[in-house]
Every structure is written in C-alpha cells, then in structure tokens.
C-alpha cells in the first residue's frame, strides 16, 4: 500500500490561511489503512483546525467527506455538491489523490494535507516500513523475495558491503542487513548458488518518468 503521514499543522494552516470555508477530503483506501487520511484523521485534523482558528479569532467552517478512492475521477466527482460550497479543498489522500481532485475541479484550489512517503507494509501496530521502491524492474526473483534495492541502505545488488555487522546495517544498527536476510532465505531454500551470480549495474531508468502502463482493454 501507499504510506503517507500528515504534514505539520502549521504548514496546513499556512496553505488554508484566509479561507473561511473549506472541505477536507479523506481517502478510504491506502491512507485510511496507514492511519494518515481516513475518516478518523479527517475528523482529528478538522477539530484541530477549528480549535486553532477559534483561538486566533478567525472564522473557519469545515466540511468533511471521505471517499472510497481519491485516485479515481468518477469517485471524486461525487464530491461536487460539497466542493461547490467551499473556497478551498484540503486533500488527505496521497499525491495521486490530490491531483484528480484538482483536475475534476480546476477552479478550486486543492491542497495536500499529507506527505506521501513510500510503498510499504505494516511492521507493528502503528509502524509502517518501506518495502518497494517502485523501480520498474523487479529484482525479487534473485533475492529470495527480499528487496535489496529498498531494504539495503546502499541498494547493493551483489551481496553485502563491508559494513554488515552481525546481521545489522552499518548505517543504522536497528535495521537488518538486507543481504544477510537474503543469504539466510536462499540458504533455507537451498538456492545459495544464486548468490554467486554477478549482476551488472542496473538501469535505474527502467520506468521513463512519468511512468505509464498501457494494456489492451479486456
């Protein structure tokens, strides 16, 4: 899933300064699951903004809405009634959610309340870690399903660096050395031969940015 976290309140207030009525839009998919922009966080941000404006004596009215996915234009269109009532929209979706709203309502200023951080998975309660760099040239077949491009601090392709330290990374002793994990996994599968193969430097432009995937309609 896409993982995001909320911007500091100060930044958000700066964006919406001067508006008297805004709409905060949550997204019901990835950012709900990573506790950053679901219905609950929309309510928390909205409460915080009301408190802050009340404190400063500013007038601010907030509408709230959370839709299934902000990255789908059809779903965004459902916001029309509410958008028409406000002066600006604050999106609590990832970057891919902010843009369709801005596109569907081109007259409306749309601001991001979140910073989109990475593609990852939950590690513990309230903790998410990056597990995919979206590089466009998946390497996982060679590494026992552990991605060295994102999980090795140096993104090495041919085994660990000299800094691997009892299975930990020299950059951060809290983090596992990806190549130690890969070695163990391949060992477990009896595929250690894969470690012997040399992989030349990668093409880091496997995806020409901005990326586009085209398939024939089903």
């Amino acid at each position: 899933m896409i993982v995001a976290e909320r911007k500091p309140l100060e930044d958000i207030r700066e964006m919406i300064a001067g508006y008297k009525k805004i709409l905060i839009v949550g997204c019901g998919t990835c950012v709900t699951i990573c506790w950053a922009g679901g219905e609950k966080e929309v309510a928390v941000l909205s409460s915080q903004l009301r408190l802050a404006s009340k404190k400063d004596g500013n007038e601010l009215e907030i509408l709230e809405a959370t839709i299934e996915r902000q990255c789908e234009k059809e779903l965004v269109e459902a916001l029309k009634d509410k958008v028409q009532q406000v002066e600006a929209v604050l999106s609590m979706g990832c970057g891919a959610g902010v843009q369709p709203i801005a596109e569907i309502f081109p007259d409306m200023p749309v601001y991001p309340a979140l910073n989109t951080t990475f593609v990852g998975m939950p590690e513990g309660e309230g903790v998410w870690v990056e597990t995919c760099r979206a590089c466009g040239d998946c390497f996982l077949d060679k590494t026992g399903g552990i991605c060295p491009i994102v999980r090795c601090a140096k993104g090495l392709l041919n085994g660990p660096c000299g800094g691997t330290n009892n299975g930990k990374c020299e950059i951060d002793s809290e983090k596992d050395c990806a190549w130690t994990l890969i070695y163990r996994r391949l060992e477990q599968q009896g595929r250690l031969d894969a470690m012997r193969k040399y992989y030349p430097p990668r093409n880091f432009q496997a995806v020409i940015r901005p990326g586009k995937v085209e398939t024939l309609p089903a």
């Binding site: 500091p8 928390v44 802050a52 404190k55």
Partner: peptide, 8 residues
C-alpha cells in the same frame, strides 16, 4: 502534541 500544535 495535537493541542500543542494548535497553540493550546
């Protein structure tokens, strides 16, 4: 923390 952000 949330209140502190607000200035309370």
């Amino acid at each position: 923390t949330l209140l502190q952000e607000v200035g309370i």
